[in-house]
Lab assay of single mutants.
Amino acid sequence: LHIEINVNGLRIELHNVSEELAERIREILEKVDDREEARRLAEELIK
């Protein structure tokens, strides 16, 4: 499954994740104000 999410102008592509996991990642990242911090957090979440 390939999912693309957009959060605060940051486009993140997720591969091989469930829709539920992608939604949780999006919800978490929406709470982060700083774009660079959101990017770093996204990288950690999808490892």
Rank of each mutant, 00 (worst) to 15 (best):
Leu1Ser: 12
Leu1Cys: 09
Leu1Lys: 13
Leu1His: 12
His2Lys: 06
His2Pro: 07
His2Asn: 09
His2Tyr: 05
His2Asp: 06
His2Glu: 03
Ile3Ser: 03
Ile3Thr: 05
Ile3His: 05
Ile3Gly: 02
Ile3Asn: 02
Ile3Gln: 03
Ile3Cys: 04
Ile3Val: 11
Ile3Leu: 07
Glu4Trp: 01
Glu4Pro: 01
Glu4Cys: 11
Glu4Phe: 02
Glu4Ala: 08
Glu4Tyr: 02
Glu4Ile: 15
Ile5Thr: 01
Ile5Leu: 09
Ile5Arg: 00
Ile5Met: 03
Ile5Asn: 01
Ile5Lys: 00
Ile5Ser: 00
Asn6Arg: 02
Asn6Met: 06
Asn6Pro: 02
Asn6Leu: 11
Asn6Glu: 15
Val7Asp: 08
Val7Trp: 03
Val7Arg: 01
Val7His: 11
Val7Lys: 02
Val7Ile: 15
Val7Cys: 07
Val7Gly: 06
Val7Asn: 08
Val7Ser: 04
Asn8Pro: 14
Asn8His: 05
Asn8Glu: 13
Asn8Phe: 00
Asn8Gln: 03
Gly9Cys: 03
Gly9Ser: 00
Gly9Met: 00
Gly9Arg: 00
Gly9Val: 00
Gly9Asn: 06
Leu10Ala: 14
Leu10Gln: 15
Leu10Cys: 12
Leu10Ser: 14
Leu10Val: 15
Leu10Gly: 10
Leu10Ile: 15
Leu10Met: 14
Arg11Phe: 15
Arg11His: 15
Arg11Cys: 09
Arg11Glu: 15
Arg11Gly: 11
Arg11Asp: 12
Ile12Pro: 00
Ile12Leu: 08
Ile12Asn: 00
Ile12Asp: 01
Ile12Tyr: 04
Glu13Leu: 15
Glu13Asp: 04
Glu13Thr: 15
Glu13Gln: 14
Glu13Arg: 14
Glu13Lys: 13
Glu13Ala: 10
Leu14Met: 08
Leu14Thr: 01
Leu14Arg: 00
His15Lys: 05
His15Glu: 04
His15Gln: 05
His15Tyr: 05
His15Asp: 04
His15Trp: 07
His15Val: 09
Asn16Met: 06
Asn16Tyr: 07
Asn16Phe: 10
Asn16Gln: 06
Asn16Arg: 04
Asn16Val: 08
Val17Lys: 02
Val17Asn: 03
Val17Gln: 04
Ser18Ala: 05
Ser18Tyr: 04
Ser18Lys: 04
Ser18Gly: 09
Ser18Cys: 03
Ser18Pro: 07
Glu19Asn: 12
Glu19Met: 15
Glu19His: 15
Glu19Trp: 15
Glu19Lys: 14
Glu19Ile: 15
Glu19Tyr: 12
Glu20Ile: 08
Glu20Tyr: 04
Glu20Gln: 11
Glu20Lys: 09
Glu20Trp: 04
Glu20Ala: 14
Leu21Asn: 05
Leu21Tyr: 10
Leu21Thr: 12
Leu21Lys: 05
Ala22Trp: 07
Ala22Ser: 05
Ala22Asp: 01
Ala22Arg: 04
Ala22Met: 10
Ala22Pro: 01
Ala22Leu: 12
Ala22Lys: 04
Glu23Ala: 12
Glu23Arg: 14
Glu23Thr: 14
Glu23Asp: 13
Glu23Val: 12
Glu23Gln: 13
Glu23Tyr: 04
Glu23Lys: 13
Arg24Cys: 05
Arg24Trp: 06
Arg24Asp: 03
Arg24Ala: 13
Arg24Met: 15
Arg24Lys: 13
Ile25Met: 05
Ile25Arg: 00
Ile25Thr: 01
Ile25Asn: 00
Ile25Tyr: 02
Ile25Ala: 02
Ile25Asp: 00
Ile25Phe: 06
Arg26Ser: 05
Arg26Gln: 07
Arg26Val: 10
Arg26Tyr: 08
Glu27Met: 09
Glu27Asn: 13
Glu27Val: 11
Glu27Leu: 12
Glu27Arg: 14
Glu27Ala: 12
Glu27Ile: 10
Ile28Arg: 08
Ile28His: 06
Ile28Thr: 08
Ile28Ser: 06
Ile28Met: 11
Ile28Phe: 08
Ile28Ala: 14
Ile28Gly: 02
Ile28Tyr: 05
Ile28Val: 10
Ile28Asp: 01
Ile28Gln: 07
Leu29Cys: 01
Leu29Ile: 07
Leu29His: 01
Leu29Asp: 01
Glu30Ser: 13
Glu30Phe: 08
Glu30Trp: 04
Glu30Leu: 14
Glu30Val: 12
Glu30Cys: 07
Lys31Gln: 14
Lys31Trp: 08
Lys31Phe: 10
Lys31Leu: 13
Lys31Cys: 07
Lys31Ser: 14
Lys31Ile: 08
Val32Ser: 10
Val32Trp: 09
Val32Lys: 04
Val32Met: 10
Val32Cys: 04
Asp33Ser: 14
Asp33Leu: 15
Asp33Cys: 05
Asp33Val: 13
Asp33Trp: 13
Asp33Thr: 14
Asp33Glu: 14
Asp33Lys: 14
Asp34Leu: 07
Asp34Cys: 04
Asp34Ile: 07
Asp34Lys: 07
Arg35Asn: 13
Arg35Lys: 14
Arg35Asp: 10
Arg35Gln: 13
Glu36Thr: 10
Glu36Ile: 09
Glu36Ala: 08
Glu37His: 11
Glu37Tyr: 04
Glu37Met: 10
Glu37Thr: 11
Ala38Val: 14
Ala38Gly: 06
Ala38Glu: 01
Ala38His: 03
Ala38Thr: 09
Ala38Phe: 06
Ala38Gln: 09
Arg39Met: 15
Arg39Asn: 07
Arg39Ala: 13
Arg39Pro: 02
Arg39Val: 14
Arg39Thr: 11
Arg39Glu: 08
Arg39Ile: 15
Arg39Gly: 07
Arg40Pro: 01
Arg40Trp: 05
Arg40Ile: 12
Arg40Gln: 12
Arg40Thr: 12
Arg40His: 11
Arg40Phe: 05
Leu41Asp: 02
Leu41His: 06
Leu41Arg: 09
Leu41Lys: 10
Leu41Ile: 12
Leu41Met: 12
Leu41Cys: 06
Ala42Asn: 01
Ala42Thr: 09
Ala42Ser: 06
Ala42Cys: 04
Ala42Val: 14
Glu43Val: 07
Glu43Arg: 03
Glu43Asn: 08
Glu43Phe: 03
Glu43Asp: 12
Glu43Gln: 08
Glu43Ala: 07
Glu43Pro: 03
Glu43Trp: 03
Glu43Ser: 04
Glu44Asn: 10
Glu44Asp: 13
Glu44Ile: 12
Glu44Met: 08
Glu44Pro: 01
Glu44Leu: 09
Glu44Thr: 08
Glu44Val: 08
Leu45Ile: 13
Leu45Cys: 06
Leu45Thr: 08
Leu45Tyr: 07
Ile46Trp: 04
Ile46Phe: 04
Ile46Arg: 02
Ile46Ser: 09
Ile46Gln: 11
Ile46Asp: 03
Ile46Ala: 15
Ile46Pro: 01
Lys47Asn: 12
Lys47Leu: 11
Lys47Gly: 13
Lys47Gln: 12
Lys47Ser: 12
Lys47His: 11
